[in-house]
Design a protein around this nucleic acid. Sequence first.
DNA 1: CTTTCGTCCTGACTGC
DNA 2: TGCAGTCAGGACGAAA
Length: 293
Amino acid sequence: MSRVRDDERDISAPMPELPEVETVMRGLTPLIVGHRIVRVERRVQRLRTPLPATLPARLTGHTVTRLTRRAKYILGDLSSGDTLLIHLGMTGGFFVREPSENLFKHDHLVLHLSNDTRVAYHDPRRFGQFEVIPANTINTYAALTQLGPEPLDVAFTPAVLRAALMAKKTSIKAALLDQHVVAGLGNIYVSEALHMAGIHPERQAHDITVPKIKKLHTAIIEVLTRAIAAGGSTLKDYRHPDGELGFFQNQFLVYDRADQACQTCGPKTKTAHKIVRIVQNGRSTFYCPRCQG
DNA sequence: CTTTCGTCCTGACTGC
DNA sequence: TGCAGTCAGGACGAAA
């Protein structure tokens, strides 16, 4: 009896943010770097953006020589000089498909490599993106040039963060989701960082005091660093590129914990405050009214 | 110019 | 039990 191939469950909302993208990039590296691409299967017309018709031709016969990450983008240096740009959207991931097994329903792009392996890009919600950026033009690619600083780069300082926040006329939540302010944060880690810094998500970005900005700067770096160390925080069965199941239950302090007791102030007090969920700009925000009053 | 909103997509969940 | 409706969210183009 053949296994069911097209009903992978619980790939809901893994929402790869910077740490998850970093983890996918690291896991993908040994799978594809140095192995010539001998064939490319383009199985759908488009993801969030059209899957370039030229993609197979631009990849076939070439080799990814290095993978790096910028914000939530994975960048692959190709032996042709071009750059492969990948965004995982909300549910994108890579999986090795054994020669004997059938592809999955949402395996939208399959790379056949010179070592006789095949790596599939799997993305149920099709919010991902693939582009091939011509040689020597990567530095002018708009989606990359407009990004704010990498939060784990030394260039990301409290002063840089403050300057960006002072110019914003939005809530601090919305400001941190803006990739121009700082690159790589998404809905989960914004809530987490604001909690760690003790900042109410509805406070105006330009009203945050310098001490709080310093705490926020530290919190952003800390939460991302921890998540990368943990292999990318995971929701449900978010998977690594080699197909291994994600290994941690979510260990977030506030995200998706509405009505649950706050882990931060709860142990310190007798009356446990509950995490609150609000909607800002159409996106969920979670916070503790006491810690982030 | 800046900010907000609608859109893309599928599967899990809710309620009748 | 079935099924229609709702929700989730990154990035971007359109609208405000």
